[in-house]
Design a protein around this nucleic acid. Structure first.
Length: 630
DNA sequence: ACGGTTGAAACA
DNA sequence: TTGTTTCAA
């Protein structure tokens, strides 16, 4: 439930930016004929015309609502354009909207701390930018305020029809205002400029709220839509909140809000003021009680997080009614589809953002037939995430079977699955330059050329369990053939082997980066066709950050990865090499023969895994690399 | 036995 | 920690 955060004593300038019926705008940009038309985006349309997930303002004028069916929307608004969400692998594919959202984030992140709150919303902390403006170019000269800023809605400002814009200008440059309101005025101007940039560069309109905290900014961002912004001056807060229905407040739209109404008779946020903090704590616990007490007073200490990317990736699908899945085969089929998409998405995240996900989770909804109606829920299950589509599919199926086992409690006749989803979470940045093994591979000279060359070099071993990953930016999927070509491009020429410890490897034919990675991995003869996309990895770093004392025990990723960024300065984008190795595939016997420094690093990658591990081959260096013939 | 598909977060 | 639950859009 909600938790109160300590309130920063410094006044902040926070904005919440919300795209107007975003999916519709994305489709309108793709097909400009839809502009200005009543339009809605639906996903699927077999059943009752599909479900609406976004509705244009024109269509809203006809009474079309989200949560209507396509058929119903057509009845209410016969002229409506219904655009379908793209379908891939039998499921709705939202990647187009994700990437469109990223375009917006990239622009909005330019003026201060930026938090991606959802696919189409961000929070901005503009405090510094606003202070700067107040010092350098305060908005006290009337005409320099841009048109868009002058169209702001100022909460509590008398909105005399024709005089409105003039009043707003006056408010924005008031010289007798509170310092805090002056900051807000600067924030409003900055946000107006940002919104214009978004429109110019993406063709998307958005609305925004500007206030002293996230809660207030969020509350008003949608107050005047579309394509408008709203400011909450200090003096307007109490009046605004006092009449605000509790359900409008974020976090109070559900059960907690209902409880406030039915148990305490609280209809508006103002009504909350008559309850002491102690009383609220008694009702809802210390955390939620304090939170309620504070929000009633417009206090919210939540910080804007500096995060432009999502914290997890999920793929799911529901199988309603007659479409429910009733046997293992159909579950496997759908799970494979979901895992394919998930794999693609985390691979993109790795290549584009140098991030690696550590946990795979499976969720399902199921009903048991025949059994006396057990309301029991299908348990979610998770395990360390291994890169590679095949591995993810394999693991997801195991998680499903485990969940099903628990769900059925060993006695059952029939079951049916009404929803499936797989999620990749615990995503961490891959740090650069910290890997001793990379230095080892590349030699002491850090400016040495990368150990991976272009496709002109001869494939060393098609079954190699090493995957240098290159992906064009924004290229969501690549064909199998392309992959094969790309992944074979590993050079063995580059490793300067000038240290004594390397001699044993040298003498057994281990010369280059790919060889060392191969060298680390066991079982590289198996699963030839699957291994292609399996990962290699080198280098460590888990969540806890390196300064933690007992970091090796926890906080260690199931997968370690290393990015060789040595050539990323020269290449404009996405060209750095990412190598991955499933940690469980590292052969301990081989590790023993490496220098202690490297051994320590590799130990840091390893953590207990729930996965059944393939049987270890009794292995030595020479069993992998027979002495080079000459 | 459905607005579906995502996502974040707190809690046990 | 994993798994559950709530909330939101």
């Amino acid at each position: 439930m909600p938790v109160a955060r300590p309130e920063p004593q410094e006044p902040r300038v926070i904005a919440h930016v919300d795209m107007d019926c975003f999916y519709v705008q994305v489709e309108q940009r793709r097909n400009p004929a839809l502009r200005g038309q009543p339009t809605a985006v639906v996903q699927y349309n077999d059943w009752k015309g599909g479900g609406l997930i976004a509705v244009s303002y024109e269509a809203r004028g006809f009474g079309v609502k989200r949560s209507m069916r396509g058929d119903e929307a057509k009845r209410v608004c016969p002229g409506i354009n219904l655009v379908q969400v793209p379908v891939a692998r039998g499921k709705a594919d939202l990647n187009l909207y994700r990437s469109s959202g990223s375009e917006v984030v990239a622009i909005l992140a330019s003026k201060g701390k930026c938090e991606r709150a959802s696919i189409d919303e961000v929070y901005l902390d503009l405090t510094e930018a606003a202070k700067e403006m107040l010092l350098q170019a305060p908005p006290d000269s009337l005409e320099e305020i841009c048109m868009e800023a002058a169209k702001s809605n100022i909460l509590g400002l008398s909105s005399d029809a024709s005089e409105k814009e003039k009043n707003v200008r006056a408010w924005l440059c008031r010289s007798d205002a509170d310092y805090q309101d002056k900051l807000l005025a600067c924030g409003a101007i900055i946000v107006a400029q940002l919104r214009i940039r978004v429109l110019e560069e993406t063709q998307f309109t958005c609305s925004a709220g500007i206030a002293h905290n996230k809660m207030l900014a969020k509350l008003v961002s949608g107050m005047h839509k579309p394509a408008q912004q709203t400011v909450v001056p200090l003096s307007s807060i109490q009046d605004f909140l006092s009449s605000l229905p509790v359900k409008k407040m974020k976090q109070l739209g559900g059960k907690l809000g209902s409880s406030l109404q039915y148990d305490l008779g609280v209809e508006t946020i103002g009504d909350l003021l008559s309850f002491s903090e102690e009383k609220l704590q008694e009702q809802y616990g210390a955390n939620t009680g304090t939170w309620l007490w504070k929000i009633a007073r417009g206090i919210s200490g939540e910080e804007v997080e500096d995060r432009l990317l999502p914290k997890s990736h999920g793929c799911g699908k529901t199988f309603p009614g007659p479409r429910a899945l009733k046997n293992n085969t159909s579950v496997k089929g759908w799970l494979d589809q979901l895992c394919e998409e998930l794999s693609e998405r985390i691979q993109s995240d790795l290549n584009q953002n140098k991030r690696i996900a550590q946990t795979l989770t499976l969720h399902a909804r199921a009903s048991k037939k025949n059994e006396r109606d057990s309301m029991k829920k299908f348990p979610s299950k998770s395990c360390p995430l291994r890169y590679g589509t095949g591995k993810i599919q394999e693991d997801a199926m195991k998680l499903f079977e485990s969940g099903l086992h628990d769900f059925l409690e060993s006695q059952s006749t029939g079951w049916s699955i009404t929803s499936l989803s797989v999620t990749a979470s615990k995503i961490f940045d891959i740090p650069s330059g910290t890997s001793s093994i990379l230095r080892y591979i590349k030699g002491p000279n850090s400016s040495a050329p990368p150990a991976i060359s272009d496709s002109s070099s001869v494939p060393e071993d098609p079954s190699l369990d090493v995957t240098p990953i290159h992906e064009e930016q924004c290229e969501p999927s690549t064909s199998e053939k392309e992959d094969n070509n790309r992944y074979s491009a590993i050079s063995t020429k580059q490793c300067p082997a000038n240290e004594e410890k390397k001699n044993s490897m040298k003498s057994t034919g281990v010369k280059g980066a790919s060889s060392i990675l191969k060298f680390l991995s066991r079982d590289h003869s198996a699963h030839q066709e699957k291994r292609r996309s399996d990962g290699l990895i080198c280098s460590h770093q888990g969540p806890g950050s390196s300064s933690e004392a007992n970091e090796a025990e926890r906080n260690v990723p199931a997968q370690a990865a290393v990015v060789d960024r040595s050539n990323s300065g020269a290449e404009p984008s996405g060209s750095s090499n990412t190598w991955m190795l499933n940690v469980e595939d590292i052969d301990p016997a081989v590790v023993e023969e490496l220098p202690p420094e490297i051994q320590r690093e590799i130990q840091g990658w390893i953590r207990p895994s729930k996965h059944p591990t393939a049987k270890r081959r009794g292995s030595t260096i020479s069993s992998y690399f027979p002495p080079a013939r000459s």
